[in-house]
Simulated scan of single mutants.
Amino acid sequence: MQATEAQWKEMHFAARNKELIKHWKQQIKKLTRSKACADAGLLDENLLRRSLQFYTSVAEFLLAALAVPGAGSPSSLPLPGEGPPIFSALPEWYVEDIAEFLLLCPAVSIFLRRLLPHYLTLVWQVGYTTLDINMFCPSVVADSVEDSLVTWLLVGVCSPHYFRNPYLIAKIIEVLFVVNPGIQPRTEQLHARIMAHPISETQLPSCLMKFYTDVETTGSSSEFYDKFTIRYHISLILKGMWDNPVHRQAIVNESKSGKQFVKFINMLMNDTTFLLDESLESLKRIHEVQELMADTDTWTQTPQDQQQIRQRQLTADERQCR
Rank of each mutant, 00 (worst) to 15 (best):
Q304I: 06
T298N: 05
S148M: 01
D214K: 10
T298H: 09
E10K: 13
L276W: 11
S257G: 09
I230G: 02
F13C: 07
I169G: 01
I309M: 12
A36D: 03
S144A: 08
K171D: 10
S255P: 03
M135N: 11
A65C: 15
L43K: 06
L43I: 02
H197R: 10
W242H: 06
A170H: 02
L115M: 07
R164P: 02
V157R: 00
L238G: 03
T300C: 06
D226N: 14
S75Y: 03
L42N: 11
K210D: 04
V252E: 07
W152N: 00
L52C: 02
M209R: 15
Q308S: 14
V179R: 00
Q189I: 10
N46V: 10
N244T: 08
L176T: 01
L20C: 05
S206K: 12
A250L: 02
W242E: 14
S57R: 13
R319D: 12
P106S: 04
A65S: 14
L79I: 05
D277K: 12
W8N: 13
S255N: 09
C105Q: 07
P205M: 01
K171W: 00
E201R: 15
I133S: 07
F163W: 08
L52W: 06
S221E: 11
Y212H: 13
L104C: 01
L154G: 02
P198V: 04
I194S: 02
G127K: 06
S144C: 10
P160Y: 08
G72N: 13
H12T: 09
K256F: 10
C321M: 11
T56R: 06
D295T: 05
R164G: 15
Q313Y: 11
P205L: 00
R114Y: 09
R322H: 10
V58S: 09
Y232R: 12
